[in-house]
Amino acid sequence: MAVKLFSPFTIKGVTLKNRIVMSPMCMYSSHNQDGHVQNWHRTHYASRAVGQVGLIIVEATAVSPQGRISPQDLGIWSDEHVEGFNELVGLMKEHGAKTGIQLAHAGRKAVLEGEILAPSALAFNDKMKTPKEMSKTDIKETVAAFKKSAERAVKAGFDVIEIHGAHGYLINEFLSPLSNKRADEYGGSAENRYRFLREVIDAVKTVWNGPLFVRVSAHDYHEEGLTPKDYITFSQWMKEQGVDLIDVSSGAVIPAHIRVYPGYQVKYSETIKNGADMSTGAVGLITSGIQAEEILQNDRADLVFLARELLRDPYWPRTAAKELDVTIEGPKQYERGWV
């Protein structure tokens, strides 16, 4: 049986050399608080490209200053950010990786000075700031910010855009009835709670023709919250809008106890993939090549997203290849030590 982890994957005209994706992970390293790419980012991302990761998705990147998780987040709210990202994309592509960026707004989980925004004026917990309930103008401006950020992603040369709709940030807050208590057309029914994401997707697609991913939190881990069944419906709607892949994570819209174990979220990817009949990515405590291969061979996901394991081992593709008894090409400069 052919090893699937190292087979190419083509999505909307973009071919990844393997099924290994570096999941977006915040580095909190834009120390001037201006959202610009720093040397850390250049070293961090380029090293995973040298390590032969197929697709590298840059961390949650704020579409507005108010949408940052922290003052140290990367941003793409200004044309001045494009040059740094263009350089970063070039460094990754030089080593054969495809490149993505996750466009994000933190919503009520922003830890910033000044006013923060959310669908409803509900704090995440008793230690965090109470956000302002977004007005219709706020919503319109935020949708426009996602669109302008996507335009900048095009100029920077990214191959993939991922919209961050997970982990309790703004889009996730609109989707979940636990955080969205609005009484207007953006709250109440599933269709209404989906409306903000629908508008963001539509706006992004007016300027972006490449592969479009959406990261979701497929389980709220609360009896009154969302489950993977709800996300089958949301994913079907996203598919109708032209989203190409659902990146399936879970949790973090409210404080909740989550029982974690190796591959604990893979079943959610499998549920959405089969229920919505669309491509998915699996993420969450995936650490070995054998584990990743099982996910792909059993059609539980189309791509495997790795996070902490790629922090521990920038050359994880080589580690996985050796485990699966596959030879993969490495950098020419490393030939004498790669095999």
Rank of each mutant, 00 (worst) to 15 (best):
S217Y: 15
D277H: 15
G275N: 13
V266I: 14
K267Y: 01
I232G: 06
V248E: 01
V283E: 10
E270T: 13
H219K: 13
I246V: 15
H219I: 00
L245V: 08
V214Q: 11
M278P: 02
K267E: 09
G263K: 05
T233N: 02
P262A: 08
L245Y: 09
K229D: 13
D244W: 09
H222E: 14
A256V: 15
D277T: 12
K239R: 12
V253A: 06
G275Q: 05
W237P: 01
N209E: 10
P255Q: 05
Y264K: 03
G281V: 02
G263W: 11
V204Y: 00
I254C: 08
S269C: 10
H222G: 11
Y221P: 03
A252H: 13
L212D: 01
V204N: 05
P211L: 09
T233I: 13
M238L: 13
V216K: 05
N209G: 09
R215H: 08
H222P: 09
I272S: 12
V253L: 01
T271Q: 12
Y231L: 06
K267N: 04
L226K: 07
T206N: 07
A276Y: 10
L226R: 11
H222T: 09
Q265M: 10
V207A: 14
K205C: 06
R215G: 12
P262N: 09
I246G: 00
N274E: 07
V260H: 14
F234V: 13
T233E: 15
R215L: 13
D247P: 04
S217G: 13
S235M: 07
N209P: 00
I246H: 01
E224T: 10
L245R: 01
K239F: 06
G242V: 02
G275C: 08
D230K: 02
A218H: 11
R259L: 12
V248Q: 01
T271P: 02
G210C: 07
